[in-house]
């Protein structure tokens, strides 16, 4: 196994709901190496999204350690976490989560501006990424003028804008028909071949099969961790 880029050590995440404490993750340990393509699967409510939010530095573990590229996340403050999200992580959501007021090009530019890039730089990078996902002709369209598959491709371009160490996808194909789902998945394959680390959450076994490694969760704990022989 290559040098782990993501390393979870005995991670717990619990939510307090009044008097009740819900334990979404219960002592999870997991290493993911650079360039891996991992699918996270499991029944509804087993803690997949919770895990992904932690991996994405949107959330912090209640206890345990999360090392991203060797840095312990729990020691970082909010600004530093924001910086990590903007520079080392890329998010792809089930519902695309594009900003409706902005056109395609501007949506792709959003993370670039938070990285502090100049107008011209951002424009050039965003146009390049739009080409890469095959949307260079739609730059000035608004998200609602595009199909679901196209919107998800915009989201992928946006995720790539931060030149991330890890791309995190939560049910990226969940809202798509099988054809556009396949398109997105082949884009993922391409990215992985280009060396990107990919972690995706899915329900769909056929989607999970595309990954080299399938991690199954059950009730906040690791159930199985299978690697496909190449």
């Amino acid at each position: 196994m290559p040098q782990p880029i993501v390393s979870l050590q005995e991670v717990r995440r619990s939510y307090k709901m009044g008097d009740v404490v819900v334990e979404a993750l219960r002592g999870l340990s997991l290493d993911i190496g650079a360039g891996e393509y991992v699918a996270i699967m499991g029944p509804s409510g087993c803690g997949k999204s919770t895990l992904l939010n932690l991996l994405g530095c949107l959330d912090r573990p209640t206890s345990g350690h999360y090392l991203l590229g060797g840095t312990d996340i729990s020691s970082l403050d909010d600004d530093e976490l924001s910086d990590i999200r903007g520079r080392r992580l890329g998010f792809i959501f089930q519902s695309y989560n594009l900003i409706q007021q902005l056109n395609i090009l501007e949506n792709i530019e959003v993370p670039l501006f938070y990285q502090g890039r100049s107008e011209e730089e951002a424009r050039a990078i965003a146009i390049g990424l739009a080409k890469r996902v095959g949307l260079e002709r739609r730059l000035d369209h608004k998200p609602f003028e595009l199909s679901g598959g196209q919107q998800q491709r915009v989201a992928i371009a946006r995720a790539l804008a931060s030149d991330p160490l890890v791309i995190l996808a939560d049910e990226a194909t969940g809202n798509l028909d099988s054809t556009s789902g396949r398109e997105i998945l082949s884009l993922f394959d391409e990215l992985n071949q280009a060396g990107k680390t990919l972690i995706m959450v899915t329900h769909d076994a056929s989607v999970g099969e595309r990954a080299q490694r399938v991690v199954r969760l059950s009730d906040g704990q690791l159930e199985s961790d299978k690697r496909r022989s190449a």
């Binding site: 994405g56 989560n97 990285q115």
Partner: peptide
């Protein structure tokens, strides 16, 4: 709210 969440995920700091 949703837009705020998106921007935060994409690297916006609180002060942004």
């Amino acid at each position: 709210t949703r837009e705020i969440g998106i921007r935060r995920a994409l690297g916006a700091k609180r002060k942004d």
